[in-house]
Design a protein around this nucleic acid. Structure first.
Length: 561
RNA sequence: GUCCCUGUAGCUCAGUUGGAUAGAGCAUUUGCCUUCUAAGCAAAGGGUCGCGUGUUCGAAUCACGCCAGGGACACCA
């Protein structure tokens, strides 16, 4: 189990720090400093497998040179009973402590990768805490756009990552199935329906212009029994019919789109249900009882400034209807009531200004403001041969998730949407994503996986693999692969801490690169059966890590290409 | 005006949360398939890390101030 090794090394380093404090008669070591003891993987492999820079950080505190402090720490480590973990320790540069891991640690690493297989990298760090990840939550008024596509890709990958980090994750889609937009949707379909019946109509600018509205109207028209019922309905009943029909049908489309993109949800949370359960009134009453609600100028306000928002926010308009904030307050309160300890929301960039008031709301409920994280997923700009693809949300002419999917496929789509930091803009080159060449990082990574599978298949089932003598793996390219594997748990942990999957795309490319270099220089299958067995064992570990990383991102790991 | 993001090689971007000599891919030039998949590998050139000041053992990274680009700032959802 590799995490154990990391923990033991950290413990040794901390022990060393304590010794250094004693030697300098500096009293007990502050907690902050102990927490500051971390390991990193040096970029230059001549600096060891892992390194620690704590000696430099303590220099001014202990009034000693970093080298002297490092010497004390290293001395302490060498006396410990865990020396078998490292093959060597050295002090270099300004006072870095460089650790060269023992052969056996790497052997154990490879063994645990192959034993744990799909579970390699999983930790119990988060201790099974219940986490609610809400994402996409697009209004059911049309097909999903590229913006939603990126949110879907990020959300799904992040859910996988957080599960690996030991959270009990629930993926939820907040379904905005009532309100003004839905009303407009209903009216849009209703008008198109009349149009199809031969009536002359005026179709307002602010209604949904898309072709799909006409398709939906036609669907109703072709349904005999629906038409009959409609004839008996009052205008209000008709409107309700079209609203219900529209949201239901569009949600079916959205679900299908998400399915095709392999984005999974555990729960679909209906705003309509929330409203009819009276949860909004209840939530506002509770806020009122706590003094966070007041009336002014005929509207009802939430005192969000009490928690650092710029200004107070209206929850109930002068016309008596709620703003978007009101159901959102009720919804988030319900998230906590359902037992979630940590909330993560993925929103589009247009909701950026909305964060402070939502944070204020959860504090008004009595929760810590850090109990909720909001991730803003920036827009992706599509390019085709270097020219931006025009996008307009008006007229229903936006590029949809389905179009991207049809053009570049699921794997390239998922990978490309994750390739940049989530809160940065992303340029998505459709031509590049389609290319089956080295320029395309998706294929580069998948190709490494397929190559390994090819070798493993032609090797057949080799039972001696389990008893392979891993000491035979002494080539630099083999060491590089092991180092790269070692990095995987670090990468997963970083993604979980930063709530951003993008680092995994960078990591996988570097692991694939290490493999391709190895492949080019060394043959796995040879007459030397011992070496063959050891190399098979090594590449099996590489394959497992590649597959795990790709799976986390929602990309397939093909066995042949 | 306020807030967020971005500025690193000709282009697209990494840079392990402040570490060691700033790294990849593309493009350009040049090598490598009789051998487990050439969708691959290797070599070369290419840098005022937007500008300035500060913080310290140490800054692409942090703070402040500029410059440039993108986005967000409703009794909309």
């Amino acid at each position: 189990m590799f995490q154990e090794v990391e923990k033991q090394l950290l413990a040794l380093l901390r022990e060393g720090v304590e010794k250094a404090f004693q030697a300098s008669s500096a009293g007990p070591v502050p907690e902050l400093i102990l927490n500051g003891v971390t390991l990193e993987i040096p970029k230059d492999k001549t600096f060891g497998d892992l390194s620690c820079s704590i000696a430099m950080k303590l220099s001014s505190h202990l009034r000693k040179s970093p080298q002297a402090i490092a010497a004390l720490i290293v001395g302490s480590m060498k006396e410990s009973q865990h020396q078998h973990l490292f093959a060597g320790l050295e002090i270099k540069g300004a006072g870095f402590i460089n650790i060269f891991l023992a052969r056996r640690v790497y052997d154990d690493l490879l063994r645990s990768v192959n034993e744990q297989a799909k579970d390699f990298g999983r930790t119990q760090e988060a201790g099974g805490r219940k986490l609610l990840l809400e994402f996409v939550s697009a209004n059911p008024t049309g097909a999903l756009s590229v913006a939603h596509a990126r949110q879907a890709a990020v959300g799904d990958a992040l859910a996988n990552i957080l599960e690996m980090a030991g959270y009990d994750v629930t993926r939820e889609y907040y379904l905005n199935d009532e309100g003004n937009q839905i009303r407009i949707l209903g009216r849009s379909i209703g008008l198109r329906y009349q149009e199809l019946e031969g009536k002359s109509i005026v179709f307002p600018e602010e209604y949904y212009q898309g072709e799909y509205i006409i398709d939906l109207a036609r669907e109703v028209l072709e349904d005999q029994s629906a038409c009959e019922r409609l004839r008996a309905f009052s205008d209000i009943q008709k409107e309700e019919f079209f609203m219900e029909f529209g949201t239901r049908r569009i949600m079916e489309i959205i679900r299908r789109e998400l399915d095709a993109f392999c984005v999974r949800f555990d729960n679909w949370y209906s705003q309509k249900a929330l409203t009819s359960a009276g949860m909004i009134e209840k939530a506002l009453e509770e806020f009122k009882a706590r003094g966070y609600i007041y009336e002014e100028q005929g509207a009802v306000w939430f005192r969000s400034t009490a928690f650092g928002d710029d200004k107070d926010r209206v929850v109930r308009k002068t016309d008596g209807s709620y703003t978007y904030l009101a159901p959102d307050i009720a919804y988030h309160q319900d998230k906590f009531r359902r037992g979630f300890e940590r909330l993560v929301n993925i929103w589009g960039p247009d909701h950026h200004g909305y964060i402070p008031r939502m944070k204020a709301a959860i504090q008004a409920m009595g929760h810590d403001k850090d109990a909720m994280d909001v991730i803003i997923v920036q827009l992706a700009t599509l390019f085709r041969k270097g020219v931006p693809v025009p996008m307009s949300t008006r007229k229903g002419q936006y590029v949809t998730l389905t179009e991207v999917l049809n053009e570049v496929g699921r794997d390239a789509g998922r990978f490309f949407f994750l390739m940049r930091k989530t809160d940065s803009h992303l340029d998505f080159d459709l031509e590049l994503a389609k290319k089956q060449t080295q320029e395309n990082p998706v294929y580069y990574v998948q190709y490494a996986h397929a190559r390994i599978c090819g070798i493993l298949n032609s090797a057949g089932t080799m039972e001696q693999m389990e008893e392979a003598d891993l000491a035979l793996l002494a080539q630099p390219e083999e060491r590089d692969l092991m180092r790269s594997i070692l990095e995987y748990p670090f990468c997963l942990q970083m993604c979980a801490n930063q709530l951003d999957p993008y680092a995994m795309t960078v990591y996988l490319q570097s692991l694939a690169s290490s493999f391709h270099r190895f492949y080019d220089r060394h043959k796995v299958l040879s007459e030397h059966t011992g070496l063959t067995a050891a190399r098979l064992f090594l590449i099996r570990a590489v394959r497992n890590v590649l597959a795990n990383g790709l799976t986390v991102l929602g990309v397939t790991a093909p066995e042949r290409m």
